[in-house]
């Protein structure tokens, strides 16, 4: 059986909220190392890869590998019943029809229990190759969100160019052009505000802003976001979570003009 207890329901609520508009039905693959989810959006432009490591739960028990086929819209309805600070426990049998969710509020001695019906999801297993990225940029997640939202007001696409001097986001639209450049910046007192650039070669790629703005829903999960780029490969947008867990998004580039 599976039994996984999260100190705060908030984590799962935010993860599901960040991915539910990209992917609808997906398997939560549970094994002794944790709970993983990998799903591509219908248009094959974006891929979500979530890993909640066993260390993120306390306790965590998973006797047999189990795939929990979940409709995220339905899961969202159930999670709405959980307060952010509630203790959340996920439970499932070895061959489950339902996922049992328990929300505990220790202050008010309230215990809520929900059973979510599971579905059989025949999901293609895709391997993500290990990639040595030419550029890795770490920046505040709210800054990244702001840039994407601001540029989307002008255009559907953004060009991202990295050099050792900085990272430039630029777009061209019907009403005009826009560009935001961030230079490497270290703030000892507020490391969350740092912009760090590691570069082995300059990169220039174009992406759909609609997807990037969608990924930015995860900004509440982590103060910083990591962008990994190489020419002609998908962008990796990573939000690191506590306990070496993560929420990653991959986005296929656009080519040509």
């Amino acid at each position: 059986m599976l039994e996984a207890r999260l100190e705060q329901a908030d984590l799962l609520k935010k993860v599901v909220d960040a991915i539910k508009d990209l992917v609808q039905d997906c398997n939560f693959d549970c094994n002794d190392s944790g709970v993983a989810l990998q799903a591509m959006d219908n248009s094959h432009v974006a891929l979500v890869s979530m890993m909640l490591k066993a260390e993120s739960f306390s306790p965590y028990r998973c006797d047999r590998n189990v795939a929990l086929g979940v409709n995220l819209t339905s899961l969202t309805k159930v999670l709405r019943a959980a307060q952010n600070e509630d203790i959340l426990t996920l439970k499932a049998e070895d061959a489950p029809d339902v996922l049992n969710l328990v929300f505990e509020n220790t202050d008010s001695d309230r215990l809520s229990e929900y059973d979510l019906k599971l579905m059989d999801i025949d999901q293609e297993h895709l391997g993500i190759p290990d990639t040595e990225y030419a550029a890795t940029i770490s920046l505040p997640s709210v800054e990244f969100r702001r840039i994407c939202v601001d540029l989307m007001a002008l255009s559907e696409s953004v060009s991202i160019e990295t050099s050792k001097d900085g990272i430039k986001f630029s777009c061209a639209g019907d009403i005009g052009n826009g560009a935001v450049t961030l230079r490497p910046n270290t703030n000892v007192e507020k490391p969350d505000q740092n912009v760090e650039i590691e570069l082995t070669e300059p990169v220039a790629l174009t992406f759909s802003l609609k997807y990037l703005v969608n990924f930015c829903k995860a900004a509440g999960l982590s103060k910083t976001v990591k962008l990994c780029l190489s020419n002609e490969v998908p962008l990796l947008v990573e939000y690191a979570l506590a306990g070496s867990s993560y929420l990653r998004f991959y986005l296929a580039p656009k080519i040509g003009d």
């Binding site: 591509m40 432009v45 895709l126 696409s157 174009t206 759909s208 991959y250 656009k254 080519i255």
Partner: peptide, 14 residues
């Protein structure tokens, strides 16, 4: 406008 590539091509089916 630029052409959107398909992510499917990048990932190995296992």
């Amino acid at each position: 406008s630029p052409f959107q590539l398909d992510l499917y091509n990048y990932f190995i089916k296992s």
